[in-house]
Design a protein around this nucleic acid. Structure first.
Length: 958
RNA sequence: GCCGGAGUGGCGGAAUUGGUAGACGCGCUGGAUUCAAAAUCCAGUAUUGGCAACAGUGUGCGGGUUCGAGUCCCGCCUCCGGUACCA
């Protein structure tokens, strides 16, 4: 019988669905294992061949673990709230819920086509009220908690209120944005609104005025990671800085735990570094500089208190609160000019010229507490409002930017670190000997830092302080398609979280999703929804995309529960994700937020583990070949002109300029090869696709095509072809090089597609897609299939006892597949299957004892094929409920070993010896071989190195 | 700039702790089968010299350690990813 993958796959997919083969429960005696994929955002473009790479790898691993006796949780769902659906709704009027559902249906179809072993009964969609009820619930819990630094955990806000009642806030060690201290009496003297405002500064989910990335075109605030190069990641619209009242999550409270707990999880070094850098912990001093002629002080943060004697001026961020007060009348005009300049500068412009320093003198002076000199106070945009205290002491001799600033504005520079003993040391390195610094003189930098910190603390100028680059996460979006905040406001603006029993707070149905101007979200238009009968109002912002994805891995454990986000039973059984597979793009966003939410739930005793993802694998991107046409920049006689890539050099020599225009790869002949080109038919398709170029000239080397006519060039035969310029790039809709997995599966089957994607290379590595190579894997599968049939195509499996050689082929494969799956090396697994199949075919093996185990072995990789052959072998039930073959090392023992023999480290021959020959005997025997004597003749044998079962090296003199 | 990662045939890649470099597959070349093609099968395929046996050279470049280096160490180059007025 011929191998017909599509028939087999259809049959078994139906069987799996009908018998719920992949259904899993936490009521089990077997050890658990949780394999998770980063769930997709269901975009309108559907999946391309790059997306399933991680899903295939995780599916193989999940199936493998299942066969190994584990109770495997392997779910899938959709990250279904998000901006694209909303923008689509704005342009087309289709409700986001509708387009999202349609996209999900399409994704599901594509996923089903690939034979994954997901337990679909556990599917989650973040946009479903039954799901976001619990997103809202966790948010409300965050709102009801503060972070107690003394106990290092989140605590209920009532605890804090009780302490305020008794002792005010002076003894409270909590993460906060509260800038004033108060006594118990003062607290009791506050009215409700004042108390609420104070508490807001302690809550883990809190509201504050913050400078945000406002995108006018999208009508919303964007998170830092949604802004790339100063423009919005989606759409590329300009983004400006603006102060707005926004919800935030106090992720900074968890900064240290997020940093140090990285040590105990199995993530790549690169990934840990990225998170570490993002958190950006630095230790230094927070201290005050007095202002001359004022009671006010300027608070700064520095990691280099040792250089304080070199602090000759100060710089404040332009947005700093003290700027108006410190501006003297004679400087006001200059300062105002600078402030309006800084405000108008978009983030993008600021980034574009980081080398250029700008600033203005305020006219006031601070006093350096150690030199007691008056130092001028400036403002400059290189000092950021949001980092540290928004003010710095400037030490031009030991900081590059301060140096550039001082030189530009003619400010004093005092050398304070002598680096002459440290050649190659830069200003960045904390090394050298302190000079010109009074009591610090002669000390090494690290010792001086420590000494200075002690002095600052004992003199009451400031204290040791840890600072983080990590900012609290902005959690408000002025969008429709997201989770509504489960809060209400009273007439005074006091916020209250909704009770769990009142959740979910569902999105109101609307048909206009456009943002209103001035930062008002679309929901503001749903007045009936916003204004409650009791006079309270709702929040019109919604949560960002990261909300639903910050805890979805927990919901899979118990997805239908409407009493809890997941039952304690389920959570304590499944605990954490054992293997998480997804792209690097979520390195600092999703993975950081998820870890924080998880730690919060841990603090509340609702999850048993500190970290959510034990092992993380980042799959590499599958790239596509982009095929470009060269189009001349200037039109020729009013029409566009395209040229063959082979003519480019000559044309450019003539002074013509060309741009590259990506072309749909379907039209390209020999796609992906160096000779890839458009032939006449291809050009016609191109014109049909791009009618703008109907009149254009297409100039090949030998012939020219225009308006359907091919004209041979003088002296040429007239074959027309236009060679395309090919480059490896992203696989993307906009580059017209997307390969749809459905097409590949239609032709070769899902099993083949799965194995080929794995065969392409290591899972973590980026690699280009090349459909041509798939034939090798397809041939292998047919060969594998062929082991079970005779030449006439009849089922032919024998009961005969396998030979020792056949057992050895099988068990070699078992060993290698097991080892390779365990270390996630799926590409080498595929080649092992090929080798085993080739060997068995050569041996003419059709013994049931061998083939049966081989089917079990390949089941995780080619699940449909394995089922069909399993059934053919007369087995009942699914092969995926069988066991993984058990290795018998006895079959791997070699009788004789072919030793590679080296002379002075160079391989010269091989020699066979019995495997149990002792090294001493080998040493003698090898020298007696004629072939060896050829090399040792007349020379002194200095030594013979024998590595048992590996190799022999003979060292001879001269 | 800083932090990660990677450079191996025409191509994707293999070599798990230093021990036969190039497994497996694609592509290419030749052959068998066929009226022919597809499909399949067989052989070859790093490079230089040689009919061959064999020998020389070879894992980005330059050094080093070692009986032995793709793998370890030192110094460079290139590419990819992350990040950046972070005080």
């Amino acid at each position: 019988m011929e191998y017909k993958p599509r028939e087999i796959e259809k049959k078994w997919k139906a069987y799996w669905d009908e018998h719920k083969v992949y259904k899993v429960s936490h009521q089990s005696d077997r050890p658990k294992f949780y394999v998770l994929d980063m769930f997709p955002y269901p975009s309108g473009a559907g999946l391309h061949v790059g997306h399933p790479l991680g899903y295939i790898a995780s599916d193989i691993y999940a199936r493998y673990k299942r066969l190994k006796g584990f109770n495997v949780l392997h779910p899938m769902g959709y990250d279904a709230f998000g901006l694209p659906a909303e923008q689509y709704a704005i342009t087309t009027g289709v409700h986001p819920a509708k387009s999202t559902a349609a996209n999900i249906a399409r994704y599901r179809e594509q996923l089903d086509n690939l034979g994954f072993s997901f337990d679909w009964d556990r599917e989650v969609r973040t946009c479903e009220p039954s799901y976001y009820k619990w997103t809202q619930w966790i948010f409300a819990e965050l709102f009801q908690h503060y972070y107690d630094k003394a106990q290092n955990k989140a605590m209920p806000i009532e605890t804090l209120v009780a302490r305020f009642e008794k002792e005010g806030n002076t003894q409270v060690n909590a993460a906060n944005s509260q800038d004033k201290s108060f006594s118990a009496a003062e607290w009791q003297g506050m009215n409700k609104k004042e108390q609420a405002d104070v508490l807001m500064n302690y809550r883990l989910a809190y509201k504050k005025a913050s400078y945000v990335n406002w995108c006018e075109a999208l009508g919303t605030v964007l998170a830092n990671d949604e802004v790339k190069d100063g423009v919005s990641e989606r759409g590329g619209h300009p983004v400006e800085r603006r102060a707005m009242m926004q919800w935030s999550l106090r992720i900074t409270a968890y900064a240290d735990r997020l940093l140090y707990d990285l040590d105990n999880i199995d993530w790549s070094d690169a990934m840990k570094r990225m998170q570490g850098n993002w958190i950006g912990r630095s230790v230094g001093a927070q201290m005050f500089f007095p202002i001359a002629g004022s009671e006010q002080k300027i608070e700064i943060f520095t990691t280099r208190p040792d250089t304080i004697f070199g602090a000759t001026y100060m710089v404040l961020a332009p947005e700093h609160d003290l700027v108006p007060e410190l501006t003297t009348p004679d400087q006001k005009e200059k300062v105002d000019t600078y402030l309006s300049y800084a405000k108008a500068r978009s983030e993008r412009e600021r980034m574009a010229d980081v080398k250029e320093v700008t600033g203005a003198f305020l006219g006031s002076y601070a006093i350096n507490p150690f030199t007691e000199e008056q130092i001028p106070i400036w403002i400059g945009e290189y000092v950021l409002k949001d980092y540290g205290t928004g003010a710095i002491m400037a030490v031009p001799s030991d900081d590059d930017r301060d140096d550039a600033f001082a030189r530009k504005f003619g400010l004093k520079i005092i050398d304070v670190v002598d680096k002459s003993n440290y050649p190659g040391s830069t200003r960045h390195d904390k090394e050298g000997i302190i000079i010109n610094s009074g009591f610090l003189n002669g000390m090494e930098v690290p010792a001086a830092i420590d000494e200075m910190l002690n002095r600052i603390e004992s003199m009451g100028l400031g204290k040791r302080q840890v600072n983080y680059k990590l900012r609290d996460a902005l959690f408000s979006r002025q969008r429709y398609w997201g989770e509504p905040f489960p809060v209400t406001y009273d007439a005074d603006g006091i916020v209250q979280a909704m009770a769990p029993a009142d959740l979910p707070l569902e999105l109101p149905d609307m048909d206009d999703f456009k943002p209103s101007t001035g930062g008002q979200a679309p929901l503001a238009r749903a007045t009936d929804w916003v204004n409650l009968p009791n006079g309270m109002t709702r929040e019109t912002d919604t949560m960002p995309g990261s909300a639903g994805s910050s805890w979805y891995f927990l919901r899979y454990m118990d997805p239908q529960n409407d009493q809890e986000f997941a039952s304690q039973d389920a959570v304590n059984y499944w605990r954490e994700v054992d293997l998480y597979i997804g792209g690097t793009e979520h390195a600092v966003g999703h993975l950081m937020y998820s870890r924080m939410w998880h730690k919060f739930l841990y603090d509340k005793g609702l999850v048993p583990t500190v970290e959510p993802f034990k092992k993380l694998i980042n799959q590499g991107m599958i790239q596509g070949v982009v095929e470009n046409l060269y189009m001349q920049k200037d039109k020729v006689n009013g029409v566009n002109r395209f040229i063959c890539a082979s003519l480019l050099a000559a044309e450019e020599a003539k002074g013509h300029k060309f741009t590259k225009l990506p072309v749909l790869v379907d039209y390209v002949t020999d796609y992906g090869l160096p000779a890839s080109h458009l032939n006449e038919a291809g050009v016609k398709q191109f014109i049909a696709w791009r009618p703008d170029y109907a009149e254009a000239i297409f100039e090949g080397t030998d012939a020219i095509f225009q308006k359907g006519v091919v004209t041979a060039k003088a002296g040429k035969t007239g074959t027309f072809q236009l060679i395309t310029q090919s480059e490896v790039g992203k696989m993307s809709k906009s580059l017209y090089n997307v390969i749809n997995p459905d097409d590949v599966v239609e032709q070769y089957g899902a099993d083949c597609f799965r194995m080929y994607e794995m065969f392409l290379g290591p899972i973590e590595q980026a690699k280009p897609w090349d459909t041509k190579g798939i034939s090798g894997v397809y041939n292998f599968l047919r060969k594998f299939w062929g082991l079970f049939f005779d030449k006439l195509g009849n089922w032919a499996v024998s009961d005969a006892e396998p030979t020792r050689e056949e057992w050895k082929i099988l068990h070699t494969a078992i060993k290698r597949i097991t080892d390779d799956v365990e270390r996630y090396s799926f590409n080498t697994c595929v080649s092992t299957f090929m080798i085993a199949t080739n060997d068995l075919q050569k041996a003419g093996c059709n013994k049931v004892a061998i083939l049966e185990e081989l089917v079990q072995l390949i089941a995780p990789f080619a699940p449909h094929l394995a089922e069909e052959l399993w059934q053919g072998l007369g087995k009942s039930g699914s092969v995926h409920h069988a066991n993984f073959p058990i290795l018998n090392e006895a079959y791997l023992v070699e009788d004789t070993i072919e030793y590679p023999v080296q002379i002075n480290g160079k391989l010269r021959m091989t020699a066979a010896f019995a495997a149990d020959t002792p090294p001493q005997v080998l040493e003698k025997a090898i020298l007696e071989l004629e072939a060896v004597q050829k090399w040792t003749e007349g020379k002194e044998v200095k030594k013979v190195i024998v590595v048992p079962k590996r190799m022999i090296n003979i060292v001879v003199a001269g």
